[in-house]
Amino acid sequence: MGKAPVRKLAFQHPKFLIIAALAGLVIGLTANGLNYDKQIRKTATNRPDSIASVAAFGKVYKVLKSPRCMNCHPAGNIPLQGDDSHLHTMSPIRGKDGKGVYAMKCANCHQATNSPGVGTPPGNPNWALPPEDMKMVFQGKSARELALQIMDYKRNGHKNKAQLIAHARDTLVKAGWNMGDGRKPPPIAYKEFVAAWDEWINKGGYAPGK
């Protein structure tokens, strides 16, 4: 019998799943050096450091590939579900805006907060897949591919570095660590994820070799 923790998360935001992808934009930035935030640049810890950056991304990658993030960044148009990342039952599809179609819109089942019990829909006010024109696929991506994708302004939801950094603070991202009964959280704690995320980006947003 499932418990019913109806915890309201003050921070909940919609596109937590998308976030991770957004976060990635920085790399593109690194590559063309466009929007490097000078303030951040000044601090010693933010000096480009490919070794530290890649190491940090190793942690980030584990989170992005965990079911809590990857399930809504599927390779196809149907989200994944569960700790085993099976295809979502009843095959809901992305739709243009990522919010489903017709009688199968995400918000028809996914409420603003988690539904109580095991096997019930987790909730967020902005529950969605990335949209049709910016799919930000995580599933099947190597660490290098994903890092490059996140750094690419054209593939990361058009986020610059500052937006990426901010994105890790997005309540939606944070919701990945509270997805309701019966769902394993990502492999590292949220705080640790944010730290790794920042470090990866601030130290140059380098992509691993593989």
Binding site: M90, S91, P92, I93, V101, Y102, A103, M104, N108
Partner: peptide, 10 residues
């Protein structure tokens, strides 16, 4: 196909 997409949850 539209019908499948809309009705798969029923």
């Amino acid at each position: 196909r539209d019908i499948e997409l809309a009705m798969e949850g029923n």
